[in-house]
Amino acid sequence: MSLFRFLIQGWGIPEEIRDKIFEPFFTTKPPEKGTGLGLPIVLKIIKTHDGFITYETEVGKGTTFYIYLPAVEKKVKKFEEVEVKEITPATILIVEDDESLRYLLKEYLESRGYKVFATDDGYDAIEIYKMNIEKIDLVLIDIGLPTIDGITTFRKIRQINPNACVVLTSGYFLPESDPATLMAEEGLNGFIQKPYDIDKIEFLIERFIRGK
């Protein structure tokens, strides 16, 4: 096993919530500051690689996370044995205010060969889209953005380019932001429910890009 150690200095984790920190959507932050998806996604990635995670914490001092991953000898396969999964060359704009989720999704998609812009702000996303309108193939927007919400961001991007391929994401949504209604009435290209299943996200993105 290979061990990775991460020290986070801060308040530490109170005993009464320690059994909840890996639950999707659990957070002690206000809604505009976090979605509670960072650690669940980290756990998902670690399990995908047959590893596990533990931690030590002390209230008032901080928390140390220990990530254990199998140390395996890399096997070089012959060319004909390698399963090649082709991706559609594309540039994606991620608009997500959860820093850990935005970072993980950006890193994963770039590792798969996509070009990625990423921001946590709807206004910034609109400017990025304006400057790169010929390059961006897909815009992935979280509904619950803090300054300008994801639905308004979607509509403003569509004003710039009526043919823009836009997909909304959320862990929850209000009736007035029902994605089925937005798809039927405003041409929204799709909706992805959080938490992301990291091993399926590429398939969904490919489907949206090829079907736009």
Rank of each mutant, 00 (worst) to 15 (best):
Y66D: 00
Y123F: 11
P70Y: 08
T169N: 01
V116G: 05
T152D: 13
G10L: 10
F173H: 07
D120Y: 09
I205Q: 08
K75P: 00
Y103I: 10
I67F: 14
A180V: 07
F26H: 05
L93C: 02
L7G: 01
F117A: 07
G36F: 06
P70C: 10
Y196S: 09
I67T: 14
E56N: 11
L140F: 15
K47H: 12
V84L: 15
F25G: 11
V42K: 09
G36M: 05
L109F: 08
T64C: 01
V59C: 03
L168H: 02
G122N: 07
R102A: 13
T48K: 04
E185Q: 07
V76D: 09
K20N: 02
I205W: 08
Y108A: 11
P14I: 03
I141T: 13
L168G: 05
V82L: 15
R207T: 14
P14Q: 12
A180N: 08
D19N: 14
L39H: 09
D178K: 01
I198G: 01
E80V: 13
T152N: 13
L104V: 13
S100I: 13
L145D: 07
V116R: 05
Q193E: 13
F4A: 08
T64I: 12
G38Y: 01
G144S: 12
G60C: 08
I141M: 06
Q159N: 04
L39G: 03
V82Q: 14
G150F: 00
G62C: 06
Q159I: 02
L105I: 15
Y172G: 04
Y108V: 04
T57N: 07
E58Y: 04
P179F: 00
